[in-house]
Amino acid sequence: MRRLKWVSIVAVGLLISLSGCKIVKNPDPDSAGQADANLTDEARMAALARDIWDTDVLPTVAEHLVPIDDLRVSLAQNEQAAGQSHGLRPEGEANPWNFAVSGSGSIVEANTTSRAAKLQVDTTGDGAADVTVQLGPVIRGTAIRDAMPFLIFTDFRDQIEFAKLAGGLNAMAHERLSLPEGDIIGRTVSFEGVFTYRDLASAPEVVPTALSFEAPE
């Protein structure tokens, strides 16, 4: 009888103790939220860049495309007016204009083996390169990110995260490129893409969103 009473007392004590506790399940490492939390900034921003590339980035570029010859004329006449008519930039007048351009020309120099691969293109027919097309995978600048009006710095955690997004977008540009085999110097290349405007004396360094090559003669 005494043993029965002792067991009953222990059972009641356990029930009281458990009633004051909250049982918390361990997070499921396979859940989407937990998986996102485990990603690095670089991986998360690369995933975001991939998600928005076809649905948002390419349509924005297409909407604002201006032939590069026409843009040169507009910039020579009035840089500020050209920027207001054709340019894209983050909020703030201190930020440089970015332009979405289309054009074609003859390849006068091609560096396709470097990680910072580039084409030097003559779009005016004078035999001298006047546009650089960045191929990557190392692509300089943040032109694509800064040309997207829906990508606002304050929507991101900090400058590091925002910089990783620029890298992710540049990586998408590189991923979508396809170069022909063999020597491409002298061939005609057509491009669409974005560059950050510096000044009239500086050749545009275009990050391409579309690139095509004419077949050799």
Rank of each mutant, 00 (worst) to 15 (best):
M1L: 11
R2N: 11
R2V: 13
R3S: 12
V10Q: 09
A11D: 04
G13I: 09
L15H: 02
I16Q: 03
L18Q: 08
S19M: 11
S19A: 15
G20P: 00
C21Y: 11
K22M: 12
K25G: 05
N26V: 11
D28Q: 03
D30Y: 14
S31V: 01
A32N: 08
G33A: 14
A35P: 01
D36F: 14
D36I: 14
A37V: 06
N38D: 15
D41H: 06
A43E: 15
A43T: 04
R44H: 05
L48V: 05
A49G: 01
A49P: 00
D51V: 04
I52M: 06
D54F: 04
D56W: 07
E63N: 13
H64S: 14
V66C: 02
V66T: 14
P67W: 10
P67S: 09
D69T: 08
D69H: 07
D70R: 08
L71E: 05
R72H: 12
R72P: 00
V73P: 00
Q77S: 14
N78D: 15
N78S: 11
E79T: 12
G83R: 04
G83V: 08
G83A: 06
G83M: 06
G83W: 06
H86A: 09
L88V: 00
P90C: 10
P90G: 10
P90L: 10
G92C: 09
N95K: 13
N98C: 08
N98P: 05
F99M: 02
G105P: 06
G105I: 01
S106R: 14
I107H: 04
I107G: 01
E109H: 13
A110N: 06
T113H: 03
T113K: 11
S114D: 15
S114W: 03
R115A: 12
A117C: 07
K118R: 15
K118N: 13
T123R: 03
T123V: 08
T124E: 13
T124K: 12
G125W: 03
G127K: 05
G127C: 06
A129M: 02
T132L: 10
Q134D: 06
Q134L: 07
G136F: 07
G136Q: 08
I139L: 08
A143M: 05
R145W: 10
A147I: 03
A147K: 01
M148G: 01
L151Q: 05
I152Q: 13
I152K: 15
I152C: 00
T154S: 15
T154V: 13
D155V: 01
F156M: 08
Q159H: 10
I160L: 11
G167L: 09
G167W: 02
N170R: 04
N170G: 04
M172W: 03
A173M: 07
E175Y: 05
R176T: 09
R176Y: 04
L177M: 14
P180R: 07
G182F: 09
D183P: 02
I184C: 04
I184W: 12
I184Y: 12
I185G: 04
I185V: 15
R187Y: 01
V189M: 02
F191I: 00
G193D: 08
D199V: 00
L200T: 03
L200D: 05
S202Q: 13
S202N: 11
V206Q: 05
P208C: 09
T209C: 03
L211D: 07
L211I: 02
S212P: 03
E214P: 00
P216Y: 06
